[in-house]
Design a protein around this nucleic acid. Sequence first.
DNA 1: CCATAAGCGGACCACTCGGTCCGCTTCTAG
DNA 2: CTAGAAGCGGACCGAGTGGTCCGCTTATGG
Lengths: 199, 199
Amino acid sequence: MTSSRPQRADAARNRAALLAAAADEFAERGMDASVADIARRAGVGKGTVFRHFPTKDDLIAAIVLDRVDELTAAGDRLLGEADPGVALLAFMTAAAHQRQQRDLSFLHGAGDVDPAVTGARERMYRVIHDLVDRARGAGAVRPDVTGADVILLMCAPNYVAGYVPDASPDLWRRYLGILFDGLRPQGAHPLPAPPPTLA
Amino acid sequence: MTSSRPQRADAARNRAALLAAAADEFAERGMDASVADIARRAGVGKGTVFRHFPTKDDLIAAIVLDRVDELTAAGDRLLGEADPGVALLAFMTAAAHQRQQRDLSFLHGAGDVDPAVTGARERMYRVIHDLVDRARGAGAVRPDVTGADVILLMCAPNYVAGYVPDASPDLWRRYLGILFDGLRPQGAHPLPAPPPTLA
DNA sequence: CCATAAGCGGACCACTCGGTCCGCTTCTAG
DNA sequence: CTAGAAGCGGACCGAGTGGTCCGCTTATGG
């Protein structure tokens, strides 16, 4: 419905190259990666970038969408896992692993207007809530921890490990371990503030 | 020795105003706060900024220096506290509290060349190591946790809470609670990666 | 009170960025 | 094979940046 003619083959190729180049460039240079550099890396002209993505934010949104959907799929798969505690830990591991490969942690404020992105994010939130509810029900995590907590906390291990300049690529696993021990019911102390509510 | 004449009174006043305005501006706008805006906020001209701080990075370094020294002093004080576990938690609380008031988390890569800043940071690291060693010795934290771990982890609660748009200003306390429970010896699981070594 | 150096402010510069535009090229339907 | 649309690229633009410069103002020691 959007197009009578499908799309030219070279255009599709360029679009894919652009997405890949942009992901790499953002991962290396952070949010400040320039559109010009992305275009050069993809081997196209700057105009081509804006033809495919009207705005830099649209380009970012497209990348974010892919990654969020990827995590949602992983979470869905893990809802079938027998041990709910193992499933939750596996999900957090998957999320951290994705982010370790390419740190695109500026999925915040970027695609927040794009309904496709907000929708995808909501779906991911739902899956995480389900994973946490199951784990809590099984006694694998402390009773006072919520899905929102996990959504927030799962970003922490990479962030923390990212401060070490020449860190082992597995350092985040150490902090995920400590964090997850904090989520377990054994030896849990009462928390001094209520959990947040996420959109 | 640096100056035959001390410094003009108005210059000193401007320097102080500039530091305060810059801290506020950076906290609100992040690293992208422009020098022009800082100058306007301090009620001076842009030239005056560069007279006091040859470079934007020098301005940042001056701010960072203050804050690091502040934390070092707090840590030193807490080394006199009777309960080592309480002391460590209090230090992490102080650090998070400071950062909650003004998030200046781009103390990284900014003043890293300035020897004054690196020296101050090293002093802070020493104090943290001492606090952690004491706490570990007292059995207040798990045996496999190091000073470097705490240095990295103490940044996490604010980071995590920062994702919530209209969060309670105390939300970071919740995540510091979870994190600290993960540092306790009760119910600790072996960690899958060795601790890092920090410069 | 005054001479003078310290301090000030904002016009100015070079540069980079996201985004636009349009003449040229290339794919593709028929 | 060809016509025409879809796609392309890079010159170009305006806004905003960090940093410089210099004529004017103002604090201050004697």
